[in-house]
Design a protein around this nucleic acid. Sequence first.
DNA 1: CTAGGGTTAG
Length: 452
Amino acid sequence: MISGLSTRLLNICISSFCKARNLEKAEALIMDGIRLGYLPDIVTYNTLIAAYCRFLGVDAAYSVLDKMKEAGIHPDVITYNTLITCATKKKLISRTLDLFHEMLESEIVPDAWSYNSMIHCYFKAGRSDDAYQIIQEMFSRNIAPTLATYNTIINGLCKAGDIGDALRLFRKLDVLCCPPELITYNILIDGLCKCGKVPEARRVLKELGILGYTPNAITYTTVITGCFRSGQANLGVELFSEMKHKGYNIDAFAYCTMISAFSKLGMTEEAYAYTDQMLGCGAPIDIVSYNTMMNSYCKAGDLVSAFRLLNEIEDGGQKSDEYTHTILIDGLCKIGDVDAARRHFRYMETRGLGSSIVARNCLIHGLFKAGQVDLAIKLFSEMKVKDSYTYTSVLHGLCKAKRFNVAVRLLSACLKDGVKVLRSARRAVLAGFRKESRKLKSTICLAKGLHT
DNA sequence: CTAGGGTTAG
């Protein structure tokens, strides 16, 4: 009894150290506890695993799971849910699936949380059909869906472009005994904005107010992004100052919303003004904020400032990511320095980020633009995974280089494999090929004429 | 231990 109580107290202390990111202290406390005879329990380990997931990633967290098993404590459904959620957050799809299977093999019965995470995982991976299958499985196993389940599905449907189904499910929530909450409204508003239905989003916003919900900072930034996307920059700016005026916490999220919106419009001055505000307000600057600032510098052609930020990131002990380097590579290509872009891509590879399809797409585009056709084709043929951006860039590039025969063959391969290619690329290839054929025909006619 | 806002390419 006393031992149980003490372990519980120990767990509370460990939890607060974990929240403060002080994992060394947390582990030292576990060791102290063991010395005093208070053995860590499942809660201790789950707390530690959650902290490892948050700060060090799923691999590090998994090593705690091994230690836990060595100590004779069996992982439970919460242990696996924690790991699964972490893997999904990091977009490690196959890792998520492996963990789910491992959980089943360990005879741990998945609960609603597990299923919610799996649904989220499949939607995030763009695998809607697999998500539906998991939902089916959840129902057939009589696991009651929660509001989080419906929120996850509505979000997934929105992201998959299925706004109609998302709205239908949303309207059914009361009947399903899961009345929507603010988070549900935020999901729906974002989904509506992202598919261009800003007026509907504003209707939902109004409905939210009528029902007595108060929009939070997330609601605001979501609507602001929607305004900019629909060409209503003024309204976006207005809402931002309203947000400030009403005392909402203006954090890096809010500032980055404005910075990236103005960057997209090519309005450098405004983007820089919000950057100054962000840096001046003392909010912590995370990697996404750095990437946002770098992007605005790159869009303005100021690569010197962008690289200065890269040094700042690395000196400050933060880790640059795929976005960071892709932004730089694209920036270098846009100012015409493809050699530097290639060098930076090699640097990116040394950082273990070389598999980035977006970075490769940018580089291919830049190489074609700079007339380095053979290098572009080499990079293209080396790519293991290609997408519709890859093919569109390559088709445009081949047309620019007047290699219409290759382009036609590639285009027909795309059509056969169901790869979506921008209409502009399809038209360029066909127009070029027709023109080329006409030229060829007239040359043949001319040659025939000369010989007869 | 899940679900929502800000970062990249045609």
